[in-house]
Simulated scan of single mutants.
Amino acid sequence: MSDSPSLLFSLDGGVATICFNRPQVFNSVNKEVALALQQHLRECQQNPAVRAVLLTGTGKAFCAGQDLAEITGPESPEVAEIVEKLYNPIVELIRGVEKPVVAAVNGVAAGAGANLALACDIVVAKESASFIQAFSKIGLIPDSAGTFFLPRLIGMQRASALMMTGDKVSAAEAVQMGMIYKAFPDETFEQEAQALVKKLAAMPTKGLAYTKQLLNVSFSNDLTQQLRYEADFQLRAGNTSDYREGVAAFMEKRQPSFTGQ
C-alpha cells in the first residue's frame, strides 16, 4: 500500500483498498484523513481499472469517528462545519461511486466510523468487532447519514434505541438485526473479506452499478416510479457487453469473462 501514512491506498486485481491507518487513536478521522478519503473515492470512480472498493482499518479499530482533539481547541472549527465539509461528501461519494464498495469492519466502528461503514454497499465484520452510535454520550446527534441508513436497515425502534442509549452492538447482533451482511471468524476475516470483494470485482460491474443506482432512488420513489426506473435500467443493462458475454457463457457452458463494459 502507499500514500499518506494515515490513510493507505492500493490497487490490485481491480480491487482498490482504502485503509484507515491511525491505530494509536483507533483510526479516528482528522481533516487530513477525511480529505484523502474523499480524493481516493473520486479516483476510484474515475479509474476504469478499479472494479470494486474495500474500506477497512488497521489495528484494533475500524474507525472511531471524528478525532475529538481536532475540534476541542480554542480555534477549532465548528462541528457542523466538520460534518458538512468532511463527512457529508464522503457519504455522497460512497453512494455515488458506480462500483461496489465493501466495508470490512476489522474492529470497533463508533460514531461517524460506524455510519461511514453503513453507507457502503456491503458490510462485513470480524466476529470480535462492534458498532456503537456514540454521539449521545457527548451530547451530539448521529451524523454521516446515520439517521438515514440505520432506521432503514434495522427499523425505527431499534435505531432510536441504539442512537439514544449508545449501546454497543456485537457483530453477531448486527447480523441478526440486519445491520450488516455477515460476520467472519477473526482468524479468517481478511481472507473472507478479500474473497468477497474479488468476487464482486470479477462480476459485471456495470450491472452492479445500475443496481446501486436503483437502490439509491428506491428510498424516495413510489412503486410506479421504481418500476419505471427498473425498466429503464434493464434496457441499459441489456445493451452492455457484459450482458452479451453472460448469455454467451451460459449457452456455451463456460465461465464468463466480464469487463465492466
Rank of each mutant, 00 (worst) to 15 (best):
C63R: 03
V91C: 13
L54W: 10
G96I: 05
V33Y: 01
V29Q: 01
A69H: 15
P74E: 15
I18E: 02
T58L: 09
A80I: 12
G73K: 12
Q24P: 14
R22A: 07
Q38H: 07
D67V: 02
V53T: 03
T58Q: 08
E43L: 11
K31F: 02
G73W: 14
T17C: 07
C44S: 05
F20R: 01
R95E: 15
V79E: 04
R51M: 11
E81I: 10
A34W: 01
L54N: 10
P77V: 08
Q46E: 15
E43W: 08
V29K: 00
N47I: 15
R42D: 12
A49D: 13
N88S: 12
I82C: 05
C44L: 07
C19D: 09
L54P: 08
I18G: 01
Q38T: 06
A80V: 11
T58P: 00
E92A: 12
H40N: 15
I82Q: 01
E75V: 06
F26C: 09
A69D: 15
E81Y: 14
L55W: 05
N88Y: 13
H40M: 14
V33E: 01
E92G: 12
E81T: 15
E84Q: 12
N88F: 05
Q45W: 04
Q46I: 11
L41W: 02
G96M: 04
C63G: 05
D67L: 02
E43C: 10
C63W: 06
P77L: 12
S28Q: 09
T17A: 07
E81D: 13
N88W: 06
R42A: 12
F20A: 02
N30V: 02
A34G: 05
E70Q: 15
A16E: 02
Q39T: 05
A80F: 11
A64M: 10
D67M: 00
V83A: 08
V83R: 09
I90N: 02
P48K: 11
G96S: 13
A69F: 14
I90H: 02
L93I: 06
S76K: 04
A69E: 14
A34C: 07
S28V: 06
G59Q: 10
A69W: 13
A16R: 07
G59T: 07
F20P: 00
I18V: 14
P74M: 14
A36D: 02
R42F: 09
K60S: 15
L86G: 02
E70S: 12
T17P: 00
A52V: 06
G59M: 12
T56E: 08
A80L: 13
R22D: 01
Q46M: 10
S28P: 03
E92Y: 14
K85P: 00
C44K: 03
C19F: 06
V29Y: 01
S28N: 07
V33A: 04
A36V: 04
D67T: 00
A34V: 00
E84H: 12
